[in-house]
Design a protein around this nucleic acid. Structure first.
Lengths: 140, 140
DNA sequence: TAAAAATTTGTTATATTATAACATTATACT
DNA sequence: AGTATAATGTTATAATATAACAAATTTTTA
């Protein structure tokens, strides 16, 4: 167990654990209803844990979905350096790990020369599996 | 007047007009309260107009803020091909028009080779004007 | 180790953002 | 003109998120 997960509080661990169990992003109130048996009773307890987990980079917020997903990139210890692909059809979200793209984004400055602390990039499309299903359906 | 703005309905025009008057992004309920004198009474009327305006590319949704901003790029007639810079301090949002970056994003495919229909990229940082203010403050 | 500081917790209430559902009216199409 | 499509108006409610405050816990540091 590394420093960061050791330093997590009880509620933070419960929430992180639930998010990590799901491969799809989860919603705050879905987290709440799923962890009530563990003693978390109210929205603020969930949102506080989420805020902290985002801050330390253990999870990310999928902005276009109001949902939360575990970080899949081991060295991703900061918020707001995120790239996702999102399927329009099944809404599955994958975190993209593409060093060349990362470098492009990190080095980007606007026309004033402003440097940015972070970014969030969401790609939208149809994932492979949904594309296949669509092809299946047109066969009939 | 081009085809698209001609084809806008009464409510769509009212909502678009209000958004275009503001250089900062505006929130749905702020739109509502500001257009009530024009006969728009309830949230669904605003949200419907917003949905349509987004679909035709006249406005964009700033995902991390739940806010809406007029498109500043004349040929931007589709949703989900957006790049913004957002100031962490004053929350002002600028739409970035950088052909090289656009090409990079348009041509991106993931490791499965999947092509994407669209993207939304938000850069976070401190804008020039806020940076200057901070420097002013440290002088004292 | 005791006091101070910082963080986390538990709780109630409420603010903010967004949509469902349904009847009606207006507009565009052929 | 008749049909299809889009937009409107309305009420109610769902979904997402935070404010505020008292108490307990953990960490720091003197």
């Amino acid at each position: 167990m590394d420093k960061k997960s050791k330093s997590l509080s009880k509620n933070q661990k419960i929430v992180l654990d639930f998010i990590q169990k799901n491969k799809k992003p989860v919603k705050a109130y879905s987290i709440l209803s799923n962890v009530q048996k563990k003693g978390i009773n109210a929205p603020p307890q969930v949102y506080r844990a989420l805020d902290k987990l985002i801050k330390i980079g253990k999870i990310h917020r999928v902005e276009s979905q109001n949902s939360f997903v575990a970080c899949k990139i081991s060295n991703c210890d900061t918020p707001h350096k995120t790239v996702f692909s999102i399927c329009n059809s099944c809404e599955i979200v994958s975190e993209i790990n593409d060093p060349k793209l990362f470098k492009n984004l990190k080095d980007f400055r606007d026309k004033d020369g402003t440097v940015f602390d972070g970014y969030n990039l969401e790609f939208f499309g149809t994932c492979k599996s949904c594309k296949n299903k669509q092809i299946e359906n047109t066969k009939h």
